[in-house]
Each structure stands twice: as structure tokens, then as C-alpha cells.
Design a protein around this nucleic acid. Structure first.
Lengths: 197, 197
DNA sequence: ACCTGAACACCGTTCAAGT
DNA sequence: ACCTGAACACCGTTCAAGT
């Protein structure tokens, strides 16, 4: 009751996303959950996509805070990176539909504006953690944005393939966590200057 | 006219996917394109999802053939891998909605049966190319399914992030192709035995 | 400023019926 | 075996109107 209607609509949309996937987030169901008429949402958001974008902004902000917390831990840079990736993978597994909305939905990504800014903040926080690892020579000494993007893309690929049930079937990698560990091990190995080069 | 109705429905669905994305593939639009009544598709496929699965099977089969062709080229193993990845990335860029259907749609992946078998054949063909690189020590000497899955996931992640417009915004990697090159370079470096270990 | 109710143009899906 | 037409229960969105 303390929440304003727009916040309650966002919360209801997120809840429906968690319980029934994106298809379950109809404006009618959201409005019903909040206790308003089926088109009251239009008074707060441009359309259905605008409401989903608001959910995405909320979660990007939350992830940014979680990454910032990992970065400020008093542990080795590589441990910070692993911690951040654990947070990221856990989020994707607990809230698969939300994860998909933030990181794999083309329509949502097209919003730009505040949503894009929130996504960039999350990315920047993650990039800072990767930079810390590079400073310690735990990861290859190369363009930080490129390396960050590659790690981000790889982890996203592992998560998306698992979410689609395409990981078990291939039997290669049993879990996302295993894939992330393997990736970091290979990248660390690539960071070690080889005399053979 | 030589095509049977079920094949024409598949072709029309693929065409609508290309021209308007997944949302444009309504059974009514598919039926209209083929010239049958709006529920004739139900006589050939279980439901809308079944029709989309048929499109996916068709394209998986095509990709399997393209990978097999790459593997039989008379060039270095690493060139075969690069060729296969170029085919894969090109497919994702020319037919983004189809790519998404095959590699990123949870509902479609849940079909199992013939669709899963077709996907596994594509993966097996790609794994054989990766194995060829491992035999030449161009890629790390480790479990082939694990390495294949990691490469596959990474490339998929790069493609999916670009498709969602999340690649330009981060400015890290300008293109999918650049990301794939970087990945292969780092993995090759990890394959070189280092005296420092 | 915020909300409601009716209406419109869509959907997927089912069912009885036709050849 | 293959298809049609009507019908049902949904959607997102718009509009005029209410407080």
C-alpha cells in the first residue's frame, strides 16, 4: 500500500515473469494482480514493452549494486570476478525469464534511454572487475573492453544454452558453472607469457 | 505447386520469420500465404509450435550439411573451423529470427524427438571440426565435448548479444567476427604449452 | 492526475461438418 | 486424407468519459 501504482505494476510484472514466463505477463493479468482496471497500466507506461523495460531497469540497477559489492570485497581480483560471475549465473537460474528480458530480448534492448544507461552501468562495473584481474596479470594483457565483452558474451552463451535445455543434450559441459571455470582457466593460461611464442 | 502443403507451410513460416520476426508468424498469416484456410495448418502440425519446430529441423539439417562441407575442404583444420564459424555467423546475420528459433528459443528446444536429433547432428559435425584442430595442437588438448561446447556457447553469446543490439553499446567488440577471432587467438595461445607452468 | 468501461482488430485453438 | 467456417476465450491498444 505504501508503494505507488507504477511500482506495484513493476513488481507484479516481475512476479508474473517469474511464475509463468514472458507470455504470462499480459497487461490484464498485471492489472488484475494490482487491483486496477485492465488498461490502467497505460497511464503509467507507454505500452506493454515499456512496463517490461521498467522491470529491466530495476534489475540492471540491482545487478550493478551486486557487482559493486563484489568489487569492494577484500579478496584477490580473480576471486572478485568469480564472485561476480556467481551472482550473475545465480540470477539467471533463479529468474530465467527476467534474465532473458535483460540480456536476450531484442525488443527490450531497442528501448535505449534510461534502460541502455542502466545496462551500461552494469557493464562498466563488471569491466572494472576484469581490469583488476588484468592488473594482476591473471587475465591477458589486452584491451579491457574487448576482453570484458568476450567474457560477458561467453558466459551469456553458456547461460542461454542451458536455459534452452541445449546444454544437457550436448553432454559437453554439465553446468554453466563448469563452463565458466573452464573459460577462466583457459584465459588465465593465455595470460601466462609463453616462451614458445 | 510441386510442393506438398506441409512443405509449403514450412516455407511460408520461414519466409514470415525472415520478413517480420517471430511475432509475424501467425498461423493465419502462414495459411493465407499458402492459400489455405486459417486452420488448415492443424491438419499438418500439432500446433503453432510444431510448425516452428519443423522450420528448425529443416535449418539444422542445412547447417549440418554446411559444416560437413567445411570439414571436407582440403585446408588446414583451423581454416575449416574458421569456415564453419563464418557460415554460422552469416546464417545468424542473414536470418536472425531463424537463428533465434534454433538456438535461443526455450519452447522450441523443449520439443525433443526429431528436432533434438537434428540439433545433435549439427553439434557432432562441429565437434569433429574442433577435434581436427585439437589433433594438430591448434586448440587445447582437453575433452573435445567440453571445448566444443565452450566455443559454441561463446560464439552463440557473441551472436545473441549483437542481435540484441548489446554489442555496439558496450563498444568492446565491434563485431561478432572480431569476437570470434579473438576467442580463437586466446584459445590457440592456451594450447601452446608454456614453460612457465 | 488517475482511473474505468466499452469497443476494435487481432490471436491460437477447437469442433462440427464437408469432399 | 484433407480442408472449411463458425465459434470461444483470449490478447494489446484506443477512446470517450468519469472523479
Amino acid at each position: 500500500m505504501a508503494m505507488k501504482t507504477d511500482q506495484r505494476l513493476i513488481a507484479a510484472a516481475a512476479s508474473l515473469l517469474d511464475s509463468g514466463g514472458e507470455a504470462a505477463v499480459t497487461l490484464r493479468a498485471v492489472a488484475l494482480a494490482v487491483g486496477v482496471s485492465h488498461n490502467a497500466p497505460y497511464k503509467h507506461f507507454k505500452d506493454r514493452s515499456g512496463l517490461l523495460a521498467a522491470v529491466a531497469i530495476q534489475d540492471f540497477t540491482m545487478l550493478t549494486a551486486a557487482f559493486a559489492a563484489a568489487r569492494q570485497m577484500r579478496v584477490k581480483p580473480l576471486s572478485k570476478l568469480k564472485r561476480a560471475l556467481t551472482v550473475f549465473v545465480s540470477y539467471s537460474q533463479r529468474f530465467p525469464a527476467r534474465y532473458r528480458l535483460l540480456f536476450s530480448d531484442p525488443d527490450i534492448a531497442a528501448h535505449g534511454g534510461e534502460l541502455e544507461a542502466a545496462a551500461l552501468r552494469t557493464f562498466a562495473e563488471f569491466a572494472a572487475i576484469v581490469q583488476g584481474c588484468q592488473d594482476e596479470n591473471d587475465l591477458p594483457n589486452m584491451s579491457n573492453p574487448e576482453l570484458t565483452s568476450l567474457i560477458y558474451a561467453s558466459v551469456h552463451g553458456l547461460i542461454d544454452l542451458q536455459a534452452g535445455g541445449r546444454m544437457r543434450q550436448e553432454k559437453g559441459l554439465a553446468s554453466v558453472e563448469g563452463g565458466v571455470d573452464l573459460l577462466l582457466r583457459l584465459l588465465s593460461r593465455a595470460a601466462t607469457p609463453s616462451l614458445a611464442e
